Amino acid sequence: MEKSLAEMQKEVDRYISQFKEGYFSPLSMLARMTEEVGELAREVNHNFGEKPKKSTEEENSIELELGDILFITICFANSLGIDLTEAHDKVMHKFNTRDADRWTKKDTE
Rank of each mutant, 00 (worst) to 15 (best):
S61M: 06
D68G: 05
L40F: 11
L64W: 13
K51T: 15
E58C: 02
I62Q: 09
K51N: 15
K54E: 15
E50L: 13
N45G: 14
N78G: 01
E36D: 06
I62N: 09
F76H: 12
G38S: 11
T56S: 14
K53Q: 14
C75T: 03
K54N: 15
C75H: 01
K51S: 14
T56I: 10
G38Q: 09
A41C: 13
E63S: 13
L70P: 02
T34N: 13
L66H: 01
L70C: 09
T56Y: 14
E36G: 07
K53I: 06
E50T: 12
F76P: 04
F76G: 02
G38P: 07
L66T: 04
E65A: 07
V37I: 10
G67Y: 02
N45T: 15
E58R: 14
N45F: 03
E36L: 04
E39K: 11
G38M: 10
E36T: 05
E59M: 08
S55C: 00
E43I: 05
G38N: 09
E65T: 05
I62A: 05
N45I: 14
E57R: 03
E43D: 10
L40D: 09
E36R: 04
D68H: 06
L40W: 12
A41R: 09
I74R: 02
T73E: 04
L70G: 08
N60D: 13
E36M: 06
F76D: 03
I72T: 08
E43C: 11
N78L: 01
E65F: 02
L64C: 06
G49N: 06
N47V: 00
A41G: 15
I72Y: 06
E39G: 04
N60T: 13
K51V: 15
V37M: 10
A77M: 07
N60W: 08
E63R: 14
E57T: 08
N78D: 01
L40N: 07
E43F: 04
E63F: 14
T73Q: 08
I72L: 12
